[in-house]
Amino acid sequence: MPDGAPASYEAAVERLEEIIDRLDSGQAGLRETLDLCKEGKGLVDYCAGELDAVGEGLKELNLDDLAAKLDSSAGPGA
């Protein structure tokens, strides 16, 4: 994932596994190793961020309440 954010959590994990396999193989040159480590760190941060987003306790919303809120904010004078 050299440029931009990963497409999804699973894409990030898949790439991360590739990177670690490559590093474990011991065949990557120094430049490649450093690049892979940098990319991998970005992916780890992304994955950790995604997990943090669903790690702060379950929130419950009601669709009817959301719809009502939407209606009032769309009402006249809003």
Binding site: L23, L30, T33, K41
Partner: peptide, 22 residues
């Protein structure tokens, strides 16, 4: 998510090991 958090920690370690080791 519990397993995934452990896995990400493991991968972060593997990366650090990879970089330092290399």
């Amino acid at each position: 998510c519990g397993v995934a958090r452990a896995e990400v920690r493991r991968q972060a370690l593997a990366l650090r090991r990879g970089a330092d080791g290399a």
